[in-house]
């Protein structure tokens, strides 16, 4: 099957800044893909290059098999981009904005267009604001319109560049519900975000960029597993200091054990029972994407240094 997005050795310089350094990966159709990295990593540059806003110096980019330079019309029809900046045209209402955007993509006046616009407005809770001028909308509302604009031409691939930055919890919920639905219906979703818990809970696969280089590319599951530093925290009034397994006392009966595989837990608990301990409380801490991210970025610094 054609990749939804194909990035081959993409390189881009802005003067002395190497914004993209031979980036290469594919995103499969139907994937929910996360593009993570600190500020200035090159995420927006990569998205802009896919959208034809930035011209890469070398390499190749395709959207649904269409080259973004030589076959730009087809490539752009396949792609819906929600820009990072909160931009809008102050001359128009929400509905006018969406109709205009549909028109730019060659979708003229029709019942199908209008009902799709109504549907998008409904799903993004924008219906009450449909006839309001863009100028009068709050930041969160403007962000919703940006999402709506990216969807008017029903693109199979949807790219969201930090869509939840500075957005209230309610909108995040609404937005993710809608995006999930689109993903279930077969749309490919590419997402950048600063909220790593969002990426962790939603993305099937993640690429991490740093200073223009790709430093990780794997399924979210593998990223979490690979860097496993799981901990078991438990509370017991038995003395575990003589026990094998290297438990660290935390005071007030709390002990912390590190482990890698869940299979290590049962022997540990058996030891505690053998020592006559009774477990009062217990919790397992999984590594989260935040920790993984920080670790990968640190490792990279050491490599660079």
């Amino acid at each position: 099957m054609t990749a939804a997005v194909r990035i081959v050795q993409a390189t881009k310089r802005f003067g002395a800044t190497l914004a993209l350094d031979r980036i290469e990966f594919d995103i499969a159709q139907g994937e929910f893909f996360g593009l993570l990295g600190p500020n200035g990593a090159g995420k927006t540059t990569l998205i802009s290059a896919l959208a034809g806003l930035v011209k890469i110096d070398s390499g190749r980019l395709e959207v649904m098999g269409c080259d973004v330079r030589s076959d730009y019309r087809a490539a752009r029809r396949q792609l819906g981009v929600v820009p990072q900046e909160l931009v809008f045209d102050p001359f128009f209402t929400v509905r006018e904005t969406l109709r205009m955007q549909a028109g730019y993509f060659g979708i003229g006046r029709s019942a199908a267009r209008d009902s799709w616009i109504d549907e998008i407005l409904e799903h993004l809770d924008l219906t009450p604001k449909a006839e309001a001028n863009m100028r009068t909308l709050s930041g969160g509302m403007k962000r919703r319109v940006l999402v709506a604009q990216a969807l008017v031409h029903r693109p199979p691939v949807i790219v969201l560049d930090e869509p939840t930055a500075g957005v209230d919890v309610e909108l995040r919920q609404t937005l993710w519900q809608f995006i999930h639905r689109l993903n279930r219906e077969g749309h490919t979703i590419v997402l950048t975000t600063h909220y790593l818990e969002e990426a962790e809970s939603m993305c099937d696969r993640i690429a991490m960029l740093k200073a223009g280089c790709m430093v990780a590319l794997d399924t979210t599951r593998n990223l979490l597993d690979r860097s496993a530093r799981r901990t078991l925290r438990l509370r017991t009034f038995a003395d575990l200091s003589e026990m094998p397994g290297g438990g660290q006392p935390q005071g007030d009966g709390w002990w912390i054990f590190s482990f890698e595989q869940f299979a290590e837990i049962e022997p540990l608990l058996a030891c505690i029972r053998a020592a006559g301990g009774e477990i009062a409380e217990l919790e397992i801490n999984q590594p989260d994407l935040e920790q993984v991210f920080i670790r990968i970025m640190r490792e990279q610094e050491q490599v660079d240094g």
Partner: peptide, 16 residues
């Protein structure tokens, strides 16, 4: 459109 950034909507579209 360039200063406010909304020219991006035209530039994203399949317009020659």
């Amino acid at each position: 459109s360039r200063v406010t950034g909304n020219l991006v909507f035209v530039l994203l579209a399949p317009i020659s």
